[in-house]
Structure formats: C-alpha cells, structure tokens
Write a protein that binds this DNA or RNA. Structure first.
Lengths: 188, 188
DNA sequence: GTCTATAAAGCGATAGAC
DNA sequence: GTCTATCGCTTTATAGAC
C-alpha cells in the first residue's frame, strides 16, 4: 500500500480493510503508525534479499559465457529496474521511505544500515573486477553507483524517464566507473 | 514550509498563520492545495535561477585562473550542496516535490520541464569541455550527473551522509564522466 | 486475538460580512 | 482583499465486549 499511495497516503483503516481485519487489530499488532512503517521497511529488505538471491542462483545460464564480474555487477544493479510488480513495489516503497526520512528521523537508522549493506555488496563486485584498486576508490565508486541508481529510480517511478532509459544510463555508468577503476593513472 | 515539513506535512492553516493571514485568504489567492504546490514549485525554480546567475557573475575571482569549463561545471553542480538556508530549502523542497510526484501526477509536467532545462545546462558545460564528443554521449553524461546529484541530495538531506562527502562524490563523478568523454576509444 | 464503537483531534474548503 | 466562523469529512488511537 505504501508503494501505491506513499507513506503520506497510507491510511490505517484502508490497510485494515485490505487485510480484511479491523483497525483495532492493526494497532494491536503494530502498536502505532511508526511501528507499521518499521515493519514495512523490514519486509521490503527481506523481500529484496530474497529476489537478489534467487537471481544469483539462476543467473549463469550458459556454463561459462558472459559470466564476468562486470556482468554480475550490472545484473545486480539492474534487478531494481524491472517492471515486475514485486520489484516495482519494492523500489517505490523503498524510495518513499527514504524520502520520508528527510522529514521524519524515525527510520533513519534502519535505512542507513540497509543502505550500507547494499553499498558493500556493490563494492564486493567492484573488488572482484579490480582487485588492485584502492579500497577508498572502490567504496566511492559503489556509493556513486547506488546513489545514481536511487536518483534514476525516482525518475523512472515518477514517469519522468522510461524504464529502458534508466537501465541504459545505469549500464553506461557501470562502464564509466569500472573503466575508471582500471585506470591507475588518476588519483582517488 | 515544504522544506521544513514536506508536502505531506504542509497544513494550510499553518501556512496562513506563518504568513500572518487567514486561511480564507490563502484559498482566495491560490485556489486550493494543488495550486499552492504549483506556485511553490515556480518559486523554487525562480530562486534557483537567481542564485545560479549570481554565482556565475561573482564566480571568476582571479582574471583567468582556474576558469576552465571543468571547474565551471563542478561549481554549478556543487551549488546545490551548500549549507545555506536558501540552498538547503530549495534542495529539500525540490526533492520533496519530486518524490511526491511519484504518487501524484499533478506536478509532473512542471517537474519534467525544469529537469530538462537543468540537464541541458549541464550538457552545455560538457560540450564546452569536450566539443568533439557525440551529442548522445553528452546528454547521457548530463543525465547521469543530475540523477546522481538528486540521489546524493536525498542522502545528504536525510542525514545519511555528511555534506562534504556528498560534495566529494559529486566532484569525483565529474572527473569520471569528463574523463570518459575525453576518451574516444569507447562507444556511447 | 479480534471486533465494534467511539472519542478526540485535525484538516480542507466555503460562506458571508466588511 | 481580508477576516471570522464553521461545516463536514477524515484519521489516529483507545475502550471494552467477546
């Protein structure tokens, strides 16, 4: 429901109706509105982990074709840009909770933890691709890629750019960033 | 007030109180809530143009020192990452209206127009830096830089990363992107 | 655990006087 | 142009029965 109407548009009564229960029961289980949002964020995180793992397992179709670390990184990032209900829901709700945290500190810690884990995963892929690159440069590249992904995500979800355009820009960004890490000439 | 409490937290009564007028007068001038938001977006755009122009005028301090197009681009992008009330307000409100448009199509056209103008300005700087680069590559680079800026902006404003870190990541991104455009070997 | 009923407050918008 | 007063609806949260 957060993905459909946003945090601001989430009504406890609507939620209860859709769940087929009473509002009282919702408060019984989640305590209050912030508790509801906290559980929603946890749910989103679990679900993202789930489909990330699922993609990893069924990822290498050909035995050894196109199975480079660069492709693995691209594939992982592009997971967030799919027009599947589950993915779109997750991206929308995640972005909304992030945007909401600008004005409500409530969920910041949880968001920071999830974001750090996510950045670390991207950094792992970058290290696999460029083992010789200095750690700070890798971290910075991972942060730029994830921040770019979030920026593109909002544009996609608000209809400002089409899905394929977002995917294309992200793909080229991976190329730009990984090309950069491979060039030892420039600092940082 | 949007920068302080978000679109979702904006109350017409509060707005009227802060303006020292009645709620009735607010409706008289802005028609309704959406009208209020539309005017706010216009105000933000005008104000951004204002301080961008002001920065351009007082930008080159030394006669010809450090006045490269690369520095001009960096300076322009970094304008959005300053801890001045006016800038922070503008960034916060802009980000909030953008995030809000994911669920409310109302302001999408205005946002798209403003975003396109903004991307074109960045592209102009890139062309000045790399006149030989193909137009699609320049446009894509400009879109990546502005999308990254928006992603970093949310992280900064929600306290996930400090201001200086956002500035540093943006600076290096400019380096990565402009370095890329200067390399004619790779397509796109 | 679950429901009904309702308190209590908030909020967008309008009417009508001046 | 501006204000006061208020309608009418929505929403969070709780009380208390079952």
């Amino acid at each position: 429901m957060i993905a459909r109407q946003g945090v601001r548009g989430l009504r406890v009564a609507d939620l209860a109706a859709e769940a087929g229960v009473s509002t009282g029961l919702v408060y019984y289980h989640f305590k209050d509105r912030p508790g509801l949002l906290r559980q929603a964020l946890a749910f989103i995180g679990d679900r993202a982990d789930r489909y990330t793992l699922a993609a990893d397992e069924q990822a290498p179709p050909g035995p050894a074709e196109s199975a480079g670390p660069r492709q693995a990184l691209e594939r992982m990032l592009l997971l967030e840009f799919q027009d599947l209900p589950e993915v779109r829901e997750n991206s929308t709700a995640w972005g909304e909770l992030r945007a909401h945290s600008v004005f409500d500190p409530e969920l910041r810690e949880d968001l920071a933890a999830a974001g750090a884990a996510w950045t670390a995963e991207v950094a792992d892929h970058l290290v696999a691709l460029h083992p010789e690159a200095p750690a700070p440069a890798v971290t910075a590249a991972a942060e730029r890629l994830t921040a770019l992904l979030e920026g593109l995500s909002v544009r996609w979800l608000s209809g400002l750019i089409p899905l394929e355009h977002a995917r294309e820009l992200l793909r080229t960004a991976v190329g730009v960033e990984t090309g950069r890490l491979g060039c030892p000439g420039e600092a940082n």
